[in-house]
């Protein structure tokens, strides 16, 4: 079975979860898996297909999360509209950032650390102003109802998340088969060569980062609607950036279903570690870390490769 077939089966099976699973815990477990799968896919668009490893995807997640929260709380804008505006604005921020860094041909570790620096600057700035919630963060008032994008029934959130993930896989498949995707991969493999063939590398990468930013911002919006609270450390802290790249790389970087498989595997490992170690604080995470190291040792191309075929192409290295 190829990675794609396995991924499709997994995706289809996940659609059944809200109809089969009665347990609220497992429903929210799978909901978080889908959320991080889509965040991983957003990273994958830029990092996997574009070969640009970002350490600062929290910037885009946070842009979506704080964008929608601020628009709703400070300006009374409807949740759906606020979300759409936040996603659009974050995509623009992504494009601007991309233009800035790609114009200077930043790659590899430089690109990675610059994105990290931008996320850190955002974290500090957001926490510094009353308008953006200051040190407290943003609390969206509890007002259940479809009109406010707050559903009492978590299954609806689940189905939205599933649709996002399915859409994310389609975007990835589109990248694998479209002209734009071919250009993006060409730039990843050999920037000068691609340029010689008439591809504008800066434009291509800027479009990719904008798409990636919009996707990550969508997760941010979704997070806020789900938990109704976000602060700058949660949204812009390095933890979220690491989560994004972790699921994508462990699943199989530059593959359409890698992030989904990665998210499932990582969260399953986390849960397994918890069940095995019981209540001793930290021991579950020790086991989780060991499992992660073992996975990298024995499945170097990500868990997608467990299904036989190697991913299409190996991406660029974290290298200057």
């Amino acid at each position: 079975m190829s990675g794609k077939a396995a991924g499709s089966v997994l995706l289809a099976a996940l659609l059944a979860v809200p109809f089969v699973v009665q347990s609220e815990f497992w429903l929210s477990f799978w909901l978080l898996v889908l959320m991080f799968a889509f965040l991983g896919q957003s990273w994958n668009v830029l990092g996997g297909y574009g070969g640009q490893f970002s350490f600062g995807h929290a910037l885009f997640f946070g842009g979506g999360a704080f964008g929608t929260a601020i628009l709703q709380v400070r300006h009374g804008i409807n949740a759906y509209l606020a979300g759409a505006i936040a996603i659009t604005l974050t995509a623009m921020v992504g494009a601007l950032l991309g233009y800035l860094v790609f114009r200077y041909r930043l790659r590899g570790a430089y690109f990675a650390l610059v994105t990290l620096a931008f996320a850190e600057v955002a974290r500090v700035l957001i926490a510094s102003f009353e308008y953006t919630g200051g040190g407290f963060g943003m609390l969206v008032p509890l007002a259940r109802g479809a009109a406010n994008f707050q559903f009492d029934d978590r299954r609806i959130f689940y189905l939205i998340a599933w649709t996002l993930v399915a859409g994310g896989c389609l975007i990835a498949l589109w990248l694998e088969n479209s002209r734009f995707g071919a250009q993006l991969i060409a730039v990843r493999e050999n920037e000068d060569g691609a340029q010689a063939l008439g591809v504008d590398p800066v434009r291509t990468k800027v479009l990719a980062i904008a798409l990636s930013a919009a996707m990550a911002a969508t997760v941010g919006v979704f997070y806020v609607q789900n938990f109704l609270f976000v602060d700058s450390q949660i949204a812009f802290g390095p933890g979220m950036s690491i989560e994004a790249l972790l699921v994508a790389i462990i699943g199989g970087v530059g593959t359409a279903f890698g992030p989904l498989i990665g998210a499932v595997v990582l969260h399953a490992l986390g849960e397994l570690a918890k069940q095995i170690t019981g209540n001793a604080p930290g021991l579950n995470l020790v086991l989780y870390g060991l499992l992660l190291i073992a996975a990298l040792r024995f499945l170097p191309s990500g868990f997608v490769s467990a299904f036989g075929r190697r991913p299409k192409a190996s991406p660029g290295a974290v290298d200057a």
């Binding site: 815990f25 929210s28 477990f29 938990f227 609270f229 949660i234």
Partner: peptide
């Protein structure tokens, strides 16, 4: 029934579901 929120709100919320069950 002990639960760990791992210093993260989302994990805390998920643990509430677990405790409820």
């Amino acid at each position: 029934v002990l639960a760990d929120a791992q210093s993260k709100p989302d994990v805390g919320a998920a643990e509430v579901d677990r405790l409820a069950e």
